[in-house]
Design a protein around this nucleic acid. Structure first.
Length: 376
RNA sequence: GCCUUGUUAGCUCAGCUGGUUAGAGCACCUGACUGUUAAUCAGGGGGUCCUAGGUUCAAGUCCUUGACAAGGCG
């Protein structure tokens, strides 16, 4: 995997670039739709590629390990063969699940013992077996196994958590070095910077991960409850240290405004459940602001969903109709709203990329963050 | 015509022997959602307890009258 910079913004840290994987290349900045269980919920691959113009999607080690399980995935030729998705694929390591399933887990130096949320069965994730699992899934980009502490974690906890994550990273890297992709192509492994909201921990973490000279680096543990400006300053702290010659991936972020602010600070890759989950819950992101399509005010609004939208759904359906579908709980509502939001997010980063290349990103971005904050 | 049962929120219904400010589900309105355990979750508005009398310190609850509904008997 190689990353090349096409243009760096002279006024800020924003940059436009691209990287290649065995399953295709990706233009950055990029947003990666989340497909936790091997599917971007409710969306066909055809629409993902041809309508939304997704270039790379996510899968999740935790979920795919539990179902369908490694035996099926191996025999299917990995998630590509299993799901039919032929584009680039990134898998999260399950580190976030260690955080979000905190109620039923036990952290040790060895790894994390947890009970399946499906049937309660007991399992152990270790840095090494998480790499093995991602090898079997066949992800083009694998993620290191980390712990994601809550934003409310005190300094001591965050510091010890970082130590644990760094020791796990070392073992992830060892396992990465001694194994190969079972399907014969190259798989990258991204370390993850942690350190919660503490600048010195973030610096320590960033300096440590850079030592591994990885294909790319992720910033994790943000957008977990801390104020947005704290997140932005943490991104700056990390990106001051992470090399400009590698893609930087801000994990789990975020709102359209979060994404523009992070692009300005030199982030290249994003993923977030927000466009898909919030879409299923009736929230639509547009250039003019946010719409709750379930609100009564849209009941007799027969204008198209989003005249400036880039998906076919934006002009194929009216607001009143999409509200009706939402109110009735029709599955098409979730599909239309997810399509719209993902297309918007992809359009957002594509447009940002164009402005970076044109050299007017900063001006454009400052206008956008005002518009995007509005509620319609 | 007689008998029985019923009438409580927009809908379907809980409310034990009378006792704080009459509840639920759904519907409606609004909000939340950031490396998905989420087509989810939270909050809010909404009542002449069928009518009219009566008993009682106190009635959705007991008694009487009428209206309406369902079922049964003629």
């Amino acid at each position: 995997m190689n990353f090349s910079l096409e243009k760096s913004d002279p006024h800020c840290a924003a940059r436009a670039g691209s990287f290649t994987t065995a399953h295709g290349s990706v233009l950055t900045p990029i947003f990666m739709p989340v497909g936790t269980q091997g599917t971007v919920k409710g969306i066909f691959h055809r629409d993902l590629t041809q309508d939304i113009h997704a270039q790379i999607i996510l899968g999740n080690t935790y979920h795919l390990y539990l179902r369908p399980g490694l035996d099926i995935l191996r025999r299917a030729g990995g998630l590509h063969g299993f799901s039919g998705w032929q584009g680039p694929l990134l898998t999260d390591s399950g580190g976030f699940q260690v955080f979000s399933l905190a109620a039923c887990r036990k952290l040790t130096a060895e790894g994390c013992r947890f009970a399946s949320h499906i049937d309660g069965s007991k399992h152990l994730f270790t840095p090494a077996n998480v790499i093995d699992t991602q090898r079997i899934i066949g992800a083009d980009i694998m993620m290191a196994f980390d712990e994601c502490p809550p934003s409310t974690a005190p300094y001591d906890y965050a510091s010890r958590s970082l130590d644990l994550t760094l020791s796990w990273l070392d073992r992830c890297m060892e396992q990465y070095a001694r194994t190969e992709c079972p399907y014969g192509y190259h798989q990258a492994l991204f370390p993850i910077v942690q350190g919660s909201v503490f600048e010195d921990l973030r610096r320590r973490s960033a300096r440590a991960v850079v030592e591994y000279d990885a294909c790319g680096y992720a910033i994790g543990g943000l957008a977990v409850g801390e104020p947005a400006d704290v997140m932005y300053s943490m991104i700056e702290v990390c990106n001051d240290i992470l090399p400009t010659s590698r893609p930087r991936y801000l994990m789990g972020v975020g709102t359209p405004i979060n994404i523009l602010e992070a692009i300005e600070r030199g982030v290249d890759m994003f993923d977030c459940v927000m466009p898909s989950r919030n879409g299923r819950n009736g929230m639509l992101f547009t250039w003019q602001g946010v719409i709750n399509i379930r609100n009564a005010k849209w009941a007799d609004d027969f204008s198209v969903l989003d005249p400036s939208g880039s998906s076919f759904v934006d002009t194929a359906y009216t607001k009143a109709y999409v509200r009706h579908l939402n109110i009735c709980g029709e599955m098409l509502a979730a599909e239309i709203c997810t399509m719209h939001n993902l297309a918007f997010y992809l359009n957002l980063v594509t447009t940002a990329r164009e402005h970076i290349i044109n050299g007017d990103f900063k001006v454009w971005k400052d206008e956008m963050v005002v518009q995007l904050a509005r509620r319609l």
